[in-house]
């Protein structure tokens, strides 16, 4: 079914809880002892020390190990709050309403919900993003890359020690049509600063044989996707490699743990291209365990829209994340017309 007939107003952000928009933001000067700045967004407060990120809100507080917090914050920033809910852990996270975003403590945790202690505030996306970017920039020290696998980067601990702006300000790669086409996203090479990753040293780097007839040199095109992925310098950060209208092939290389529990608001497909990833799925709203999905090379599975998922990859692996980027989907979700599972059989 084409989706075009089912839409009301896809541009209007949803506000399902009827929350007021928060507009107070503050970035405090550097702390004399740790050297880090602290931040506030609405009534949420953020402070880091040598080991932890401390999050406060009216009536509550929470802490995360700073490495886990920075890896999660990095994805939320890089993905523009992504699709649906980004759970930094079982307590803190954000939910994207595409133009606006909710930030919460305990809103996807059954114990908080039942006890009435969950706390949520609503922000304009660009305003909250601005403070998140300042936070990731200030709290990331020289030599630490929150996009990198833990074995490939330095430690995030301790007092303020420089920064790593090139790492935390990477732009997500988004091909317009296909990687390697003239005028589109270029191939990755040693010369362009993308060496083959240590765990993909055995991946062949050959390129397809392309024999265009005269006049069709720019239309007959192919590239080695596996070689391209073997040169990715980041983990758990899908980039768009080919586009059929709103169908986006977003392959990525994965190592260690997906830094967030992602509660997508739409079904999300995974195609395991190499090696193995183990996924845990939990109920999107409560965090109750649902399943474990073991994906080996060639496996295909979907994460239903009512789960949150987190992946574990011992060896760096190649994963194709398949997204439908249609701007009409948020309205379909709001109207209950988007299915949790795309196919019933």
């Amino acid at each position: 079914m084409a989706m075009s007939d089912a839409i009301a107003d896809p541009t209007r952000p949803a506000n399902p809880r009827g929350l007021p928009l928060q507009s107070a933001f503050e970035a405090a000067p550097a702390d004399n002892r740790t050297g880090y700045r602290s931040f506030t967004a609405g009534h949420f407060g953020f402070r880091r020390d040598g080991y932890f990120a401390h999050i406060t809100w009216p009536g509550g507080r929470h802490q995360m190990a700073i490495d886990a917090f920075l890896r999660a914050l990095m994805r939320d920033v890089a993905w523009g709050f992504f699709y649906g809910t980004v759970n930094f852990d079982t307590v803190f996270g954000t939910t994207n309403y595409y133009g606006e975003v909710e930030m919460f403590a305990g809103a996807t945790n059954e114990a908080f919900i039942k006890s009435g202690t969950a706390y949520i505030e609503r922000f304009k996306s660009d305003e909250l993003m601005r403070i998140f970017k300042e936070m990731i920039g200030d709290w990331t020290n020289e030599g630490y890359d929150p996009f990198a696998a833990p074995m490939e980067t330095g430690a995030p601990w301790g007092s303020k020690n420089g920064d790593n702006d090139p790492a935390v300000s990477r732009k997500r790669v988004t091909a317009k049509r296909m990687v390697g086409l003239p005028g589109d996203t270029p191939l990755r090479t040693d010369a362009s600063g993308y060496p083959v990753n240590r765990m993909f040293a055995d991946v062949p780097q050959d390129q397809p044989e392309v024999y265009p007839e005269p006049g069709f040199e720019h239309e007959v095109s192919a590239f080695n996707l596996f070689a391209y992925l073997s040169r990715s310098d980041v983990t758990w950060n899908p980039s768009v490699c080919s586009v059929v209208k709103e169908s986006l092939f977003c392959p990525t290389s994965e190592e260690f743990i997906l830094p967030v529990e992602h509660g997508n608001d739409r079904p999300e497909w995974f195609v395991q291209l190499s090696d193995e990833i183990i996924w845990t799925t939990k109920d999107r709203d409560t965090g109750a365990w649902r399943a474990q999905v073991v994906c080996k090379a060639g496996d295909v599975c979907v994460m239903p829209a009512d789960v949150r998922h987190q992946g574990f990859s011992s060896k760096r692996s190649m994963l194709l994340v398949w997204e439908n980027g249609s701007p009409k989907i948020p309205a379909l979700i709001r109207e209950g017309k988007a299915p949790n599972v795309p196919v019933r059989f």
Partner: peptide, 8 residues
């Protein structure tokens, strides 16, 4: 075009 493993 002649494709091998992983070629798109």
């Amino acid at each position: 075009v002649v494709l091998g493993r992983g070629h798109m």
